Simulated assay, not measured.
Amino acid sequence: MARTKEFDPDAALQSALELFWERGYEATSLTDLVEHLGIARASLYATFGSKRELYLKALERYGEQSDTRIVEELSQPGPALPAVRTLLRRFADEATCDDLRRGCFVTNTAVELAAHDPAAARRVGESWQGLETALVSALMRARAQGELPAGRDPVALARMLMVLMQGMRVVGKADPGPGRLRDAAAQALSLLD
């Protein structure tokens, strides 16, 4: 007779996500995970595989939560530019108000692992491509609705915004003073006029 799991794998994955997000991959040991999740090492391996596999699953979960929210915000009917402006301001505000200085889990992964872990780099790239695609779509709608001047390139603007937003997350981890981030956001927003 097979044993039933004595823990909720979904809740454990969410808990692992929070721990990895707070500490990073390298600074989180298997012992930390076992203690934080409250499960046996054998159960962790049986359910999630290795530490790396658990990290990649946590990164995927984070992307599903974060990326879905952004796509929904940018694809609402009606004027598109207000949603783009709100998103950019929110990125600046979140980077400024992040008392734990966690930043963005995807951006953290890019900085810590992407250069030497192809699977992590692929997941980071997928997340960033999704953000860029959502921005391009919103900006194309804005141009078609007359909100964005006809001479503006939605693809180039989306790429610039995506890169700026990820940069805000990095800067916010090191120097979360509001002036720098809000000034950068304001300058980027001026390109949408």
Results as ranks from 00 to 15, higher is better:
V34K: 13
A142E: 11
P77M: 04
L37Y: 06
S127A: 10
C104Q: 02
L139K: 08
K57L: 11
S66G: 11
R69M: 10
S127W: 05
A142G: 10
A11M: 09
G38R: 08
E94V: 12
Q14P: 15
F91C: 13
T86E: 15
A83E: 08
V71F: 15
R90Y: 13
A27Q: 11
Q76K: 10
T133F: 07
G38A: 07
L135N: 07
F20M: 03
A119M: 06
P9R: 05
T68E: 14
G24T: 02
A144G: 12
G130D: 03
S43F: 09
Q65Y: 11
L54P: 08
E94W: 10
T47S: 11
M140S: 13
P82D: 12
T133S: 15
Y55A: 00
A142V: 11
R101Y: 13
R123Y: 09
R123T: 06
A95S: 12
V124D: 01
L81I: 10
A46H: 11
R122Y: 00
Y55G: 02
R101L: 06
A83I: 03
R101A: 09
F20H: 02
K51M: 03
H36Q: 14
A115V: 05
E126I: 03
G130P: 08
A42D: 14
A27S: 12
L139C: 09
G49N: 03
D117F: 00
T31K: 13
Y62P: 08
A80G: 09
W21K: 06
A83K: 09
A119F: 02
